[in-house]
Design a protein around this nucleic acid. Structure first.
Lengths: 75, 75
DNA sequence: GACAATTTGTCCGTATGTATT
DNA sequence: CAATACATACGGACAAATTGT
């Protein structure tokens, strides 16, 4: 039975928020540390989720150093 | 200028090997530890590269616990 | 069947660099 | 200058599955 890993759950949750319109294009995502506390996850789990959703993956979100991560596209 | 991160270089190199046919479909990839020594990289760098190429990313390779990682598709 | 070795899968913490505020 | 935030990188720990002895 394939259990879903934590980083996959986080990615699915964020993807769902973007798809539903709760986080529209241009919306700023919570900071890395906030995501950690929200999902009670480590840096790696959050980072892996964002790596899959990021520019080198699905391309739904993108981040800029010092500013934050933003939704760039709907799934 | 955005220099390419290490995990991206590793992913590009593996992707190129698959595309060129050097690693055909069904071929078993080097083990995680071998990839680390080959690229002089850490677990995280190798893991991030394989996360992008894996089933939840591009879907070029897939792994089975205790056996190894195999090429499943050409780019 | 039991055991050890190998390998992948997941997860955690931390450090450094860079850019913005 | 200082605080915040992302990007990359390193290392280590444990579980699960496979293989060989």
């Amino acid at each position: 039975m394939p259990m879903t890993p934590l980083y996959e759950q986080i990615a699915n949750d964020i993807r769902a928020k973007i798809a539903s319109g709760e986080w529209p294009v241009g919306h700023q995502l919570p900071s890395h540390t906030e995501l950690q506390t929200q999902y009670k996850a480590s840096t790696t789990a959050v980072r892996n989720a964002l790596l899959l959703l990021g520019p080198r993956g699905e391309g739904l979100v993108d981040g800029q150093q010092g500013k934050g991560r933003y939704v760039v596209r709907k799934p």
